[in-house]
Amino acid sequence: MKPARFDYARPATLAEALALLAQPDAAVLAGGQSLMPMMNLRVARPALLVDINRLPLGEITLAGGTLRIGALARHAEVLASPLVALAAPLLPQALAQVAHAAIRNRGTLGGSLSLADPAAELPACMLALDATLVVASAARGERRIPAGAFFLGLYSTALASDELLLAAELPAAAPGWRFAFLEVARRHGDFAMAGVALALGPNAARLALCGVEAGQRRQPAAEAALAAGDPAAAIAALASTDAMDSPELSAAHRRHLAQVLLRRALAHLEAADAAA
C-alpha cells in the first residue's frame, strides 16, 4: 500500500519545527522506521509530516555527570558511542537487540521513546536509567519530564501534540551499579515478547519491563525487594504485573517470561561479579 496524502515540511530550525507542530494532525518524521510502515499501511494518516532530520538534535555529550543523547541520535550511533558505553552501559546491551542493522542506521532514540511501543526496549531502559526527557513546544517552551512521568500507556506519552522530544538526559552510571538488559524474542531483532531492563546498585534497584504491560513503568514492588536483597520476592512480585493479553501471547505467558528474565538478569550480574 501507499500512504494517504500528506503535506510535508522540513524545518531548518527548532523554532520553525515547533511552529509547524502546532498545526492540527501534524506528525514528527524522524527516522521513520515505525511511522512510515504505519503510513504505508494507512494505519497512520497525518495531515502534515514535519521532517526534523535537518535539526541539530543528534548530539551525544557527557558533561557534569550527565549523559545527554539528542533525540535524533540514530540507534547505530548510540550503540557505537564510547560515551554511552561508559555512562549508560545498559543501552548498548539493549540496542544490540533492537531490530536490524539497516533499521538502526535510521531509527532514532527520540522516535522510539515518543512512540512508546509497549514492546520496545528503549523506554524500559530510560526508566531503569532514571532518565529525564527534555521536550519543547512553541507555546510553552522547554520542559523536563522524568521518564516515570513520560510513559503513560499503550503508545501514549506525556508529549503534547505540539511538543517535540529534544533529548534524553541520564545520570552517568554511578560506581557500584550494574546493569542488565535481557529479552526473549521469537527471532533475532523482533520486538520482545518480554524484556527486562535492570539497574542494580548498592541497596537500590531500578527495574522496568518491555513487552509485558501496555504502559511501561518502573516496578516498585520488585525494586523494593531487590533493594532489600530479596531476589525471590522481587521475582514473585512480577507475578502481579498488569500484563497485556493477546491470542498469541497471554498475560500469564508474559508474566512468566518477565519472571524468568529477571531471574536470569540477576544470575547474569552475579556471574559477572564473580568473574570480576
Partner: peptide, 27 residues
Amino acid sequence: FEACRYDETGQFLSGTLADYLLPMAGE
C-alpha cells in the same frame, strides 16, 4: 514459525511480515 492466524470472529491476524513470521538467517 509460520502461521496464518484468525481471531474468533474470523478476522485475519497475520497480515504483515511482522505478524507472519518467516525463518530468518539468525535462527
